[in-house]
Design a binder for these strands. Structure first.
Length: 955
DNA sequence: GTAAACACGC
DNA sequence: GACGTACGTGTTTACA
């Protein structure tokens, strides 16, 4: 009845004030499938077919667009029948896509117009693909001066992008919406012209689902072929230039490829007119809709339609929030960030520059005289920018190829070194004094690498550092920090690509050493030049984001510490590992046998696919076993544990998995990582990947060596001191993250627990369950511990219930109690969230910022992700700051004392040292003091320290 | 070569 | 009432 009323009464209010005509074209089916797919990934929503949730998902996306982008014109296009005429050319395609359900085609305009009060035309595409209709409309609108945004899967659509046509990608998990223009499309596809997208799609055969292109040509190959030949037709014409199987395939399947291309091409002559007046948007009729929504209790919908300022919002959400982090939605009403996070980027004007169209002077310093002149010039500088070229990316095993330097924009030098190893050293020696001069600052991109390379040539870099990679990591930790990306984003410059010199990645990749000197000169000199230019840009930006201190006092000095740790390496006990490997091998063999017997069939236990089939189809352990999104049975640890009581085969399988993992990832892999030059394992720490400020470790990853299980822990026995005069010393922060929460939040109860020195999880359990410390049992402590961790890692009630294997309700109750007992923490969370909404970022104790672009997103999922980060980043980040400061100070004191002892590993909250026995008593207080006092806190910081003949004993 | 599933640490 | 649940590294299998 109300609805009937509305239809007749809504008077569309046209808004004419909009200056730019903005047309949004939506592929309705694609969006609905997108929403549907998102749901079907979750096991709970496996019921097939389109359902109301999918349609709701679609509506939400639509509303987000309306609110954010405020289009002046809009249309939704649906395929009514598929396969279309064009697709019947290919038999396989038949029946692939479902037609739009008829009721949906009627429901949508109804939803738009009546329920939401917008007039959004729905266009059906009889006999044509929705893409064709959208494409045709887009072109026509572009000619009339519209800015056109196409919301479609971007793959096919990229070909259409021009100066006024964009691809609009709605928000997804972890990402807010995204707009792709010409620049982004070119970059993404690595091509010169957007039209070439269809050539790539044609070759690759990914144009339309299930339409094959040319066999054996994947995305990458397609791109590189297009880069060389420009178009598919050209490739076919020049197929004789190709080799082997590729040539055969191109020749044999040329026709199929062309067909694929034709199908990928968007038909711009669809019979559809651009009815400008008909597509014009109106605002929802507020006066009519608002009372209606209020009466029908469409609160959420109302909020979405009218924005946060709606009076409907004033009906306060009184339900208790059971999730750790979801705050009542937009409680504070519309918030605007005072800082526009997009400010940290500068949009470079015009097309990308490159080496061929910029002025530059790159010199080759390949004689003793030229080098001497260069060194004289460099030595007179306050700081120099440099870069090394090497034969590989592992600093511990590669050889130097050349050095490049820059001190002024557009000017750089390249110093090649001979191929013969013995002849390299004297040339490096010429530069030794320069590098080791502490009065000359060193600028570079990822200096740790260059530092390590040079260490092997007996050069110890000194002086203040400015690392452009780290600078950008501080400025904007969530994005990428590669030099090429930075150059494009900040300088509008596209550097010579390394693949141009040494070929694409893979076994056929050449090395720098084989490239002609002239080419390396340009490449290398350009790197130094760009790095210097980036430094000029980043220096003021650091200041702007309050990151100067973080850069000069923490990140840059830490480079020295990490380089030393990596150079030092860790000694591994081969015999222990070999023995352990054998032991595991026999155990695994035994387990295999029992599993085969119990299952009555031989299969690959390590294959989740086969295992799932055996467990659930043959043995039928669980009738309604969960499946993954690809249709396999889930066989993860928690799933198997739930089955443990049904058959003891499950226990064996879990044991098998554990041992297999131990053997392949650690026991057998570690000895292979030993550097033949040094006989030790040299991990590499990445200082710029984890957005929270933590380090990460790889080649090998020393930060995930087992400790939880008895057997896994054995691996740590193999980490030994360098000789019998040394011991391993390990120092760990106890509960550092929780102490930091207590410190930041100043929660009285939690601070008290730490001051008293009681076990924090027991204390928490006592509080949450209202018991005394003595009454807390194992389960209570375990639950409390899980909540404490949940806080640190940004978990929800759902995550907690999963972790503890308890009902959601129970998890929610525990969390509620937790917040009642630690009100300071609840306040901290609210304050942090508020700060993030206002400012667009959060920060650590040392001012390390994390920008949260999506904190005010209308999309729940996206915003939730940002909110969890808002809580989590200051905590993890402050802990990271703390240990980094400790590392720098300890390293400095070790140097000052000229100790023989070395720091050898960092595992987030633990530092490991190789200590000379005579120095134990001197080293210990230095480690303890510096770790405890890295950052001044009220909450006591506790460090536990241990020693032993291996890493396990040191705990 | 790449994606998916899994498992390890914090 | 919807939506998806920490991150980073590395292994294996499966598939094209």
């Amino acid at each position: 009845m109300y609805v009937g009323c509305l239809i007749s009464d809504i008077k569309q209010i046209k808004t004419n004030q909009r200056s730019m005509k903005k047309l949004f074209l939506l592929d309705g089916m694609a969006l609905i499938y997108r929403a549907h797919f998102a749901l079907s990934k979750t096991p709970r929503f496996t019921s097939g077919g389109l359902n109301t949730s999918a349609v709701m998902g679609f509506t939400n996306t639509l509303l987000e667009v309306l609110r954010k982008e405020k289009p002046s014109h809009m249309a939704v296009v649906f395929d009514t029948e598929a396969p279309t005429e064009r697709h019947t050319e290919f038999a396989d395609y038949k029946g692939h896509r479902e037609a739009m359900p008829e009721d949906l085609s009627k429901a949508l305009p109804y939803i738009f117009k009546v329920v939401l009060g917008f007039n959004i035309p729905v266009i059906t595409s009889d006999g044509f693909e929705a893409d064709d209709i959208i494409g045709t409309l887009a072109k026509k609108a572009e000619q009339k001066g519209y800015q056109v945004y196409c919301m479609t899967p971007d793959k096919d659509f990229a070909q259409l992008v021009s100066d006024n046509i964009f691809i609009y990608k709605p928000a997804r998990m972890g990402n807010d919406m995204e707009i792709l223009g010409v620049k982004e499309v070119l970059a993404k596809w690595e091509i010169e012209r957007v039209e070439q997208v269809i050539d790539i799609l044609g070759l690759w055969g990914d144009a339309v689902d299930n339409i094959p292109g040319i066999p054996g040509i994947g995305e990458k190959t397609a791109k590189s072929l297009i880069k060389t030949y420009g178009s598919m037709e050209n490739i076919i014409a020049h197929s004789h230039e190709l080799k082997g199987k590729q040539r055969e395939n191109v020749e044999a399947f040329a026709e199929q490829g062309l067909l694929s291309k034709r199908l990928a091409t968007i038909n711009l002559n669809a019979p559809v007119e651009l009815d400008e007046a008909g597509l014009e948007m109106c605002d929802p009729n507020r006066e009519l809709l608002e009372p209606l929504f209020a009466e029908l209790e469409f609160r959420t919908l109302g909020r979405r339609v009218f924005g946060d300022g709606s009076s409907i919002t004033e009906i306060k959400n009184v339900s208790i929030q059971h999730d750790l982090f979801s705050s009542p939605q937009s409680q504070e009403g519309t918030t605007t960030m005072t800082v526009d996070v997009t400010d940290i980027y500068e949009e470079p004007a015009g097309p990308l520059q490159n080496i061929s169209n910029t002025e530059h002077q790159y010199h080759l310093a390949d004689t003793f005289e030229k080098r001497a002149e260069l060194i004289k010039l460099l030595s007179a500088q306050k700081s120099i920018c440099f870069d090394t070229e090497t034969t590989g990316t592992d600093a511990n095993q590669c050889d130097l190829v050349g050095l490049s330097f820059s001190i002024k924009k557009g000017q750089a030098w390249y110093v090649p070194v001979p191929k013969n190893c013995d002849e390299i050293q004297p040339i490096v020696d010429e530069f030794k004094e320069l590098f080791e001069n502490p009065a000359i600052g060193k600028i570079g991109q990822n200096i740790k690498f260059d530092m390590l390379v040079l260490k092997y040539y007996n050069v110890t870099i000194q002086g203040e550092l400015f690392d452009t990679m780290l600078a950008h990591y501080i400025i904007d930790p969530d994005t990428r920090h590669g030099m090429d990306v930075l150059a494009e984003n900040y300088l509008g410059y596209s550097p010579v690509s390394i693949t141009e010199l040494i070929g694409a990645k893979g076994k056929n990749q050449g090395t720098m050493r084989d490239v002609e000197i002239e080419k390396i000169k340009d490449y290398a000199a350009e790197d130094a030049d760009i790095t210097l230019q980036l430094k000029e840009i980043f220096e003021p930006k650091l200041e702007q984001v309050g990151g100067t201190v973080l850069a000069t006092d923490i990140e840059n000095p830490l480079v020295y510490v990490l380089a030393d740790i990596e150079f030092e390496g860790v000694r591994i006990d081969h015999d222990t590992l070999k023995e352990f490997s054998k032991e595991l091998e026999t155990e695994i063999g035994k387990l295999e046998k029992t599993v085969y017997e119990k299952a009555g069939v031989r299969f690959n236990i390590a294959s989740p696919k086969q295992l799932g089939e055996v467990l659930f189809e043959k043995l039928k352990l669980d009738e309604k076993a969960k499946k993954t999104k690809t249709g396999q049975y889930q066989t993860g640890e928690d799933v198997l544990l739930a089955l443990a009581n049904k058959s003891d085969i499950v226990r064996d399988i879990l044991d098998f998995r554990q041992m297999q993992k131990l053997k392949s990832t650690y026991v057998d892999a570690l000895p292979l990582m030993v550097n033949p030059k040094t006989g030790r394992v040299h991990t590499s720490y990445n200082q710029a990947v984890a957005a929270t400020g933590r380090l990460s470790s790889n080649n090998p990853n020393l930060q995930n060596i087992p400790i939880r299980t008895e057997r896994g822990r054995e691996v740590r026995k193999a980490f030994i001191p360098r000789n019998e005069d040394h011991v391993i010393m390990s120092a760990d922060y106890s509960q550092i993250e929780l102490r930091i929460i207590a410190e930041i939040s100043k929660d009285a109860n939690m601070m008290e627990a730490f001051v008293q020195g009681v076990d924090i999880h027991t204390a928490t359990a006592a509080k949450v369950y209202g018991k005394t410390l003595d009454e807390v049992d194992g389960t209570m402590r375990r639950n409390a511990k899980a909540v404490n961790f949940g806080i640190i890692y940004g978990q929800s009630a759902f995550g907690l219930s999963q972790n503890l294997n308890i009902p959601r309700k129970e998890a929610a109750d525990i969390i509620e109690q937790y917040f009642a007992q630690y009100p300071g923490i609840k306040n901290y969370m609210n304050d942090t969230m508020h700060f993030a909404r206002q400012n667009g970022y959060v920060q650590t104790l040392m001012g390390r910022r994390r920008y949260l672009r999506d904190i005010n997103s209308a999309n729940q999922t996206v915003r939730g992700y940002a909110e969890r980060n808002a809580i989590n980043a200051p905590i993890q980040g402050s802990a990271a700051d703390m240990i980094k400061i400790a590392m720098i100070n300890i390293h400095r004191e070790f140097k000052a004392h000229k100790f023989d002892s070395r720091m050898t590993m960092q595992v987030h909250d633990e530092l490991v040292f190789d200590v000379h026995k005579s120095e134990i008593e001197m080293v210990k207080p230095i480690i303890l003091d510096n770790m405890r006092n890295a950052i001044k806190t009220v909450v006591p910081i506790v460090v536990e320290i241990g020693m032993g003949n291996n890493w396990l004993e040191a705990h």
